[in-house]
């Protein structure tokens, strides 16, 4: 058995949640982290992602249990409200903490 001799910062990087780490999903989660909820159109406008792209990332986050999706009707228009689940919030928070630890000693 070989002993793990890697630097803690680097092994920390290897442990990053890849679901959160992807840039588009990171943008989605960062936005949903600072607000309570938003609908699909608002997220699309704020993140600059296309409908299909956003939809695909949403599915992945929803499957992981990071995102709660609520479908309703506004008049006759279907409306989808999205919010982070407590699990999603925790995952984003943990990701942010890990990244902070990795970069805190970065020389100027």
């Amino acid at each position: 058995m070989s002993e793990n001799t890697g630097s803690p910062a680097l092994t920390g990087l290897a442990d990053l949640d890849r679901l959160v780490h992807e840039p588009a999903r990171l943008a989605i989660m960062a936005l949903l982290y600072v607000i309570e909820s938003a609908d699909f159109t608002f997220l699309m406008n704020q993140t600059g992602l296309t409908w299909g792209n956003l939809s695909a990332h949403m599915s992945k986050l929803e499957e992981a249990g990071y995102l709660e999706v609520e479908k309703s009707f506004k008049g006759r228009r279907p409306n989808t409200t999205l919010r982070l689940t407590p699990q999603g919030r925790a995952a984003f928070h943990e990701y942010a903490q890990k990244m902070k630890r990795v970069f805190q000693d970065l020389p100027a």
């Binding site: 607000i35 938003a38 609908d39 997220l43 406008n45």
Partner: peptide, 10 residues
């Protein structure tokens, strides 16, 4: 709203 979407802030 139909253009910008809806949002609830924290």
């Amino acid at each position: 709203l139909p253009r910008m979407g809806q949002v609830r802030f924290g």
